[in-house]
Design a protein around this nucleic acid. Sequence first.
DNA 1: ACCATAACGGGACGGTGTTACGGAACCGGA
DNA 2: TCCGGTTCCGTAACACCGTCCCGTTATGGT
Lengths: 201, 201
Amino acid sequence: MVIDMPRPRTHDEALRVRLLDRASELLAAEGAKALSLRRLAAAAETSTTAVYSLFGSKPDLVNALYSEGFRHFDRRLRSVSRTGDAVEDVVRLGLAYRDSALADRRLYSVMFSNAVPGFEPNDEASKLAMDALRPLWDVVSDGIATKALADVPVEVIAMSFWGCAHGLVSLELNETLPREINFCRAYEPAIRANANGWRRS
Amino acid sequence: MVIDMPRPRTHDEALRVRLLDRASELLAAEGAKALSLRRLAAAAETSTTAVYSLFGSKPDLVNALYSEGFRHFDRRLRSVSRTGDAVEDVVRLGLAYRDSALADRRLYSVMFSNAVPGFEPNDEASKLAMDALRPLWDVVSDGIATKALADVPVEVIAMSFWGCAHGLVSLELNETLPREINFCRAYEPAIRANANGWRRS
DNA sequence: ACCATAACGGGACGGTGTTACGGAACCGGA
DNA sequence: TCCGGTTCCGTAACACCGTCCCGTTATGGT
């Protein structure tokens, strides 16, 4: 018997990108709390069910935002030029990390601080997230190879920098902390101190 | 005409602590998403309006949890004994910081990662939060005074440690990141490298 | 042209935080 | 002892949320 070929999906790409655009606008303007399917559907001049047709669910839509955020992140970090001095390179990466986070702070909190409650990235998105940090791993790896940094596993040093950068950035972005604390003043010195601490002595 | 004195408030303290107990249980067991007023009221065998009588709103109830969390935090950090060696003391504080966070990870994410969307701490709670970090400020301040640490403003060095600790802890607690990354292995080395980087050379 | 199926709109369901209302418990004063 | 004002909290409603069912439309291979 003949089984009819299912009709190929002709995802309305225009609607898809319009939803993503409006979603990131809504997110950037009013935060994760304001990103509701009804508001989003109204902004994109469609219905809530379009999200289910095109993405599957709200978390899946957020997943698309998340992936897009990491693609931007990746591009920024990858475009940092290398000087050959491991300490200087790490500091530059750190500054680019902060610039990226501040450029779209709401998205950063979705990416790293669980700002959308139900959301968990799928495997592909997680892989994207890890790939974005490759420049850091590379710089640290080279620094160890050229004996500029201590001879400990790459991950330990790289995670040290990542933690330091992420910590200060997320404290800076945290709107519940008192405004008088000036985290940005400590950012570069902190990264630099961390790097100096990893110098091969 | 005589205006009667208002009847003194007879806050049902038992109900109040029962609500807070059940709330922290719910939070610890199933996370911020599961902490709803209806579930909480059912668990405490009362109604949702009791929360409004006793706390004012859901954010206000979370505020009470938040304050309690920082009181625990404060107690833990304050009980760290000093050795006189600034680097060692900072490392000890860092480890206590992580222990506290891991001991009640859901509460930590409420305290530092905006896990409850609508919540913002009131002034009193914010003050409590800042006070909890005083041991760090003290240790760093002493380290600068004894010329063990570089002669830069206390806040810069203290925030550097805070950022590093908070960053690695929140990455470790972040459930959306791949499990294979072992943040705890890098924790103490990272704090130590940071401290060494701040040594007066 | 047919028609299975994808895409989408309307509306319903169960959940959320919040609030208006009403009864019960309380307590100072008569 | 009772009264009247006050506070507490339970019921029920409101507006909103994410999700899903169902009916309709649009599409494209046969």
